[in-house]
Nucleic acid binder design. Structure first.
Lengths: 339, 339
DNA sequence: TGTATAAATGTTATCGATATCAAAAGCAAG
DNA sequence: CTTGCTTTTGATATCGATAACATTTATACA
């Protein structure tokens, strides 16, 4: 069934319109010098044949692919979605498309994905996080295109960075707890070996506790493969069972906090009167829950916007102007009802 | 900066390894006849040069692109994410990649997107919904590849369909309301001109009301551009203000229901005692909210899975075997606390 | 009207891989 | 060591568009 009838090519259109295929090529682009009459003639021929440009040939011939690759950990995550949306919007004016890939929080999967993406010769690549396999790092370094690491500030950046310190960001929440006089503080996170951002948020917990001479034992690490709400429920159950006098808990994301808060309600524990619960990421659902979720806003959309701007700058650049290698966004605490 | 140093090509690898580029091409694929020793030699040369295959050239030369296009209305929507995930997983074994595009619930945007995607010569295309502009329909019909419409059962399908009747699905909820003895029933939806699935759910409301001789006036249509929770809050406010004796309301999605339920809580209205609220789509967050959200499960993942299977079948097909043009999934009511 | 300049169109070579066919090398059996 | 087969490798044409350059046609102005 498929490909039985071969699709029309530019030469077919040229034939029908009685011009050369080069003229067709020009007529189909917006800003080239083709007379109005021939352009109309060609447009008519193209419509008649149902001609659709083959960008594979086009990209191959012109040498530029017209798109930028971006990898994010998970498709179903409002935060990364915000980043991607702002990123796409920022690149749209430059006629650059976005090719998206999901690592599922696995560095091995990331390596595989990055290789796949590079094979398509993007004009730049954006990756989430600063933790990569050695080979992935090498691939990116040798790619010959701008590389931007986001959502993190790696110690040894590959190239450019648009991110923030997850460690410092999570400290905001713990300092907030402590300023309210709490001492028995806990943390619910995920598998730190897979998610370096989650790990840094946990380190922020440890640092702050240590700084104030408090115990950092009240932790629960849950399997949160498809980063979700259930683990928040099990996490808070486990913490409240082992340390019933816990006063405040920060969760590695708002989705976890959502699971934890709603589970508290089911257990008859009042949030925030009995225990305070903080989230991370300023997801929309946290704003509407009762109690609304106190959280850390990391400026997800801003990251995407900045990354897009940087890419536009780097691509238009003739290699002279030096732009900042590292752009930091400023996480802020959003005080709401839950903590 | 970019492209300054040209990336190595297959010919470079061939040179270094002392073979022809054709042999390199073969060695880099898994199942071709190349002797073990030369394959190792070539692999070594490729690694040394940091060679990465240029799929643009590869696809162009071989004539197949190796990917399938899919359009969905919104990136940040758990339901469509589920469909896409199942779809990707289903195609992964066939070495088919997925190229994703977002229509933002606009048919004009869809037309533009479909054209963009077709330019890249996918091997098949999946679109969400059965409402298209005339030109978009034409583009799809002339594309020469399998087309699958999903999440809907159009009256005049373009080619293949994997979907369900949104009308019948929403009737499940209204019949559920009525079976509980309710008569004063409402609906919160969005802009029907943009979202045909939402419109069909609304029609399901009207049909059921009419069938039982009830009024279908209690409706609120909200602007829900980035399909979200706030509109649920305003929607329920407006309905409860105008018709305070409303007994049950269905929302066009769980996200809207979430906004509506939490707003009720803030207004001191008890759900489900004072008013019952139903959602649509079986989103994860509805399962954990107190009260948990009664909803319609449309089998989002199943749609993706079926679509993938159909594509594999159609692509491997020699054009003989006739497969069903229309595959329907069976929406079910998930009875929880809110209704 | 002729010359200078700009605009419109055509010609040819090319991007990097693979399909296809041809040739060489390896191998088994007599 | 020769014949006949399989396996491995190579040479060449080709996919469809565009870059770069060449040429023709239109336009302006003296």
């Amino acid at each position: 069934m498929r490909n039985k009838t071969k699709l029309p090519t530019m030469a077919d259109v040229a034939n029908l319109a009685g011009v050369s295929s080069m003229t067709v090529s020009r007529a189909l682009k917006p800003d080239t010098s083709v007379s109005k009459s021939t352009r109309e003639k060609i447009q008519k021929a193209a419509d008649e044949l149902g001609y659709v440009l083959d960008t594979r040939a086009s990209e191959f011939s012109s040498g530029k692919s017209g798109f930028v690759a971006i990898t994010i950990p998970s498709i179903n995550n409002g935060n990364f979605a915000d980043t991607v949306k702002a990123f796409s919007d920022g690149l749209a004016e430059q006629d650059l498309q976005v090719l998206l890939g999901y690592t599922n929080y696995h560095v091995d999967r990331e390596e595989q994905l990055v290789e796949q993406l590079l094979k398509k010769r993007p004009e730049a690549i954006v990756v989430t996080g600063g933790m990569h396999t050695d080979r992935c790092r090498l691939l990116l370094e040798n790619s010959g295109i701008p590389v931007i690491e986001t959502w993190d500030v790696p110690e040894q950046p590959i190239d450019h960075v648009v991110g923030f310190s997850n460690l410092q960001a999570s400290e905001l929440m713990f300092e907030h707890f402590i300023a309210q006089g709490h001492k028995k503080i806990g943390f619910i996170g995920g598998d730190n070996s897979r998610d370096s951002r989650g790990r840094d948020r946990y380190l922020g917990f440890c640092n702050t506790m240590e700084k104030h001479g408090l115990s950092s034992e009240r932790v629960s690490f849950q399997e949160l493969a498809p980063f979700s709400m259930e683990p928040g429920a099990s996490g808070i159950r486990s913490i409240m069972k082992e340390w019933p006098d816990t006063e405040a808990v920060m969760c590695v994301s708002d989705l976890i906090a959502y699971g934890a808060i709603t589970e508290c309600q089911r257990m008859g524990i009042n949030v925030p009167d009995d225990v305070k619960i903080g989230g991370f990421g300023a997801y929309e659902l946290g704003q509407f829950l009762n109690p609304s979720i106190t959280t850390i806003d990391v400026g997800a959309a801003q990251i995407g916007k900045f990354a897009a701007e940087k890419i536009i700058e780097l691509l238009s650049d003739d290699g002279n102007t030096k732009s900042a290698k590292i752009v930091k966004t400023e996480p802020t605490l959003i005080k709401r009802q839950s903590a």
